[in-house]
């Protein structure tokens, strides 16, 4: 990677500051992971509940380094042809049609099948060369000049077979294509894999990765995130709303509100010109935070307790 990138990733502190300037407030641990990923040339396997900024981490890193982000969304049934490379069949077919005449010329005068085949052989594997190769995200990331950030999103949704496919790419940063040979990464890409833990990732893959678990942030960190993302919310409301969300996370919910939901909620409150948390308004906007009817009900029942310990809520008007 170029000099500028090297400087950006020179130390954990630099990364932390860099992320902050890109609007991504992170804990020290996350910055450490990125630092190590770069230093050890290892991919990072990011785990954590949905909505804590796993994907955003890769986005921000790409922005920070000013390199393209190449994203591969995993799903069941994802295979080589979609992830790695594919031959451009139509182009191959078209060329054979167009070149039919040429082939005729070429083969004219050849006596017998053996000689014709011999002549054809001289042209080698024209139709299986790089011109006919359609690179998919993984190969694209390998061939990117100046490096790239490769995001393999929701790896837990893919099949086991696909994981094995990743092993060569993630440990040696190369791709083997039988017809062409091995393509090695020009610049080692920074790789992030995310997982929502719907199934266990194989040990072989885990062993090749740095393991980063992003939990829900602490209140202080979340306040900083809100300040950076929704700067117009004033300090007191910010403190209150973060405390409220933290209270919600303590409840037994189907899906606890994540950072992205806190941000959305902060934005909604801003739109509603709220300057403090009021019970009615919270009740009306609860659906921004909670996505299940059951959760909304059970949180609604305990709303007063959740809002209780912050008396300025009513006296602030």
């Amino acid at each position: 990677m170029h000099q500028q990138t090297l400087a950006q990733l020179a130390s954990v502190e630099r990364i932390e500051q860099g992320f902050e300037s890109c609007g991504y407030i992170c804990s020290r641990k996350i910055a450490t992971a990125v630092f190590l990923a770069f230093q050890l040339r290892k991919p990072v396997l990011v785990e954590g509940p949905p909505g804590v900024g796993k994907t955003e981490l890769a986005n921000t890193t790409a922005r920070l380094l000013d390199t393209p982000l190449i994203r591969l969304q995993c799903y069941e049934g994802l295979d080589e042809a979609k992830a790695l490379y594919e031959w451009k069949y139509s182009k191959q077919l078209l060329y054979t049609q167009v070149l039919k005449e040429q082939l005729g010329d070429l083969l004219r005068g050849a006596s017998g099948l053996a000689e014709s085949v011999e002549r054809l052989h001289r042209f080698g594997d024209i139709f299986y060369s790089e011109q006919f190769l359609e690179p998919r995200p993984l190969l694209k990331a390998m061939r990117q000049d100046g490096g790239a950030v490769l995001l393999i999103d929701e790896i837990d949704k893919s099949d086991y077979e696909f994981e094995s496919l990743l092993l060569e790419i993630l440990s040696d940063y190369q791709v083997s294509i039988p017809e062409i040979g091995t393509i090695k990464a020009r610049t080692t890409p920074l790789v992030f894999l995310t997982s929502n833990n719907t199934r266990d990732i194989s040990d072989a893959l885990k062993r090749r990765c740095l393991h980063l678990y992003i939990p829900f942030p602490s209140a202080a960190l979340e306040e900083r995130i809100i300040r950076s993302r929704v700067p117009d919310v004033d300090g007191r409301l910010r403190r209150q709303l973060v405390a409220f969300v933290h209270g919600l996370r303590q409840l037994d919910l189907k899906k606890a509100p994540a950072i992205s939901e806190t941000i959305d909620w902060a934005r909604s409150l801003l739109l509603l010109h709220a300057d403090s948390l009021e019970e009615d308004m919270v009740r009306d906007t609860l659906n921004v935070l909670l996505k299940f009817e059951d959760d909304i009900e059970s949180a609604g029942a305990q709303l007063r307790q959740l809002l209780g310990p912050s008396p300025p809520a009513s006296g602030g008007r």
Partner: peptide, 14 residues
């Protein structure tokens, strides 16, 4: 810092 770094390479599950 060292603790976090080592945890990332050595620990593979929560």
């Amino acid at each position: 810092l060292l603790r976090d770094g080592l945890a990332m390479t050595l620990a593979k599950t929560a």
